[in-house]
Each structure stands twice: as structure tokens, then as C-alpha cells.
Amino acid sequence: MSETTDRPLRKDAERNRKRILEAARDLFAGKGLEPNLNDVAHHAGVGVGTVYRRFASKDELLEAIFEDGLNQLTDLAGTALQQPDPWQGFVWYVEQMCEITATDRGLREIAFSKSYGGDRVTAAQERLIPLQKRLVERARSDGRLRPELSDTDMPIFGLLAGTVSEFAGHLDAELWRRYVAILIDGMRCRSDQLPLPVAALDDDGVECAMRSWEPAGPCGDRSRE
């Protein structure tokens, strides 16, 4: 009798978990990482206790959602590296990365900040870095990417695309494509180019920026209140 009554409870629990994850993805994509678990519960149409039974903290929920998203960026970088033309592979990756970061605010914020998430998010971020470095080095060695461009510029490109969407995405959801095209054109190496006026951040600088940037505020509003 106990086994029979347990089964529907397990099904309900899994159904609620999926419902929470879907609601959280939708909420974070539109509003970024600022919403707390209470907001997620409201968006999912479940009691807040149901959310806390599935996810003990906001970081736990963020990892469940965004590890896959970060792995998607890594997979895209790997696919770009397989393209025989280094410049085309680089351009394709920048366009794909910017599409994701322009249309999913939560993923953008967690991809370029180290203030949220835990070990799984950090590991996913770390897997992406060397692939982006190889993409830049390959396109630079090919002679079509301007020599000053650094792999540490990549997070900035993703953030720029997202800023366009935050500013005017409600007027034109595709507007970010215009500015990414301008950006890519400016990255192409030309004989008459002047040097860039400021150097890129080094690896330590990017690490410091990612650790100090808290787009959702201190601790991402992880309290239950």
C-alpha cells in the first residue's frame, strides 16, 4: 500500500520540479537574475514551500538552469573551431554567442559574472575560456582579425549585444544584430586602421571584473523574504 501511494507523489514531485525550472528559465531570461525564489514560485503557480523543497537555495536553482546554457556556449565554440576557415568560424561564434546573450538576460548575467552559482557554474565558465582563446588566436594568425583583439574582449561583446536588447529590444527584438554586424566589421583587420586607443583587459582583469559585477545586487537577493 505504501509503495502504491508513494509513486504518484514521486510523479508529482518531478512534475513540480519541471514546472519550477521552466518558470525560472522564463523569468530569468526576461528579468535577469534579480528575481528570488518567491518570485519563481509565483511565476510557476506553486507554493513557495514547493520551490524550497526542490531547491534549497537560489544558487542551487541557478546551477540547475544555467549549467546547460553555459555548456551550450562551449559546444558552439567547439563547433566554430571545427570550421576550416578561421575567420568565418570566429564570426559565426560571435554571432551565435551574441544571439544567446542578447535574448537571455539571465544567461548573459551568469555567464559574465562570478557572483552567482556554485562549482558547476564556475566549471562551465572555465571550460569556455580556452576555446574562446583558441578561436581568437586562430583568426588572428590567419591575418583577418585585427592583431590587438584579445580573447578577453569576448565577454564585452556579449554584454554589448545584451545592452542593446535591454535598451530597445521591446521596439525591435532583432536590433542587436545591427550592432553586432558593426562590431564584427570593426574587428576585421585592415591596412589603414589606427591602433585601438586602449588595451584589452588581461586575464586577471577579466577575472576581477567578473567577480565584482553583481547585476542582480549583492548575493542575488537569495533571502526567503
Rank of each mutant, 00 (worst) to 15 (best):
C98H: 08
P84H: 04
G78W: 06
Q83L: 15
D68M: 05
F90L: 05
D68Y: 02
R105M: 07
Y93F: 15
Q83Y: 13
W87Q: 00
Y93A: 04
A80E: 08
T101K: 10
L107G: 08
A80F: 11
Q72W: 03
G69M: 00
Q96L: 02
F90M: 04
A80D: 07
G89Q: 05
L76D: 11
R105S: 03
D75G: 10
T101S: 11
Y93L: 11
Q82G: 14
W87H: 01
Y93I: 03
D85S: 15
A77E: 01
D85I: 13
Q72M: 04
V94Q: 11
Q82F: 14
A102S: 14
D85G: 12
A77L: 09
W87G: 00
V91W: 13
C98G: 06
R105C: 02
L76E: 10
Y93E: 08
G69V: 00
I100F: 06
E99Y: 09
D75R: 10
G89K: 00
W92V: 05
Q83C: 13
Q72I: 00
D104M: 01
A102Q: 12
Q88A: 15
G69E: 00
D75Q: 12
T79D: 15
N71M: 04
L70K: 07
L70N: 09
I100Y: 07
V94D: 02
V91I: 15
T103F: 06
